[in-house]
Amino acid sequence: MRLRVDRDRCIGSSNCVVVMPDVFDQDEAEGLVQLLDDSGAGHDEDALHDVAYACPAQAIEVVEGG
């Protein structure tokens, strides 16, 4: 399982950064999402799904098996 982000969809809501600052960040220039750790290590699967569905722009996806 791994995380994937779509910067074209990202609107920089920063919700993911607040919830999981060790996994998500915003770049300096545009403030759009950057993955610090695409494995989401240290977080259970439910929490990763919750943060993905909380994204108001559908910019975060949990990819099974990847």
């Binding site: 920089g12 920063s14 919700n15 607040v18 915003q26 770049d27 545009e30 403030g31």
Partner: peptide, 10 residues
């Protein structure tokens, strides 16, 4: 036009 400010604003 400053999304990076989000966490601080929250």
């Amino acid at each position: 036009n400053l999304p990076k400010a989000g966490p601080d604003l929250r």
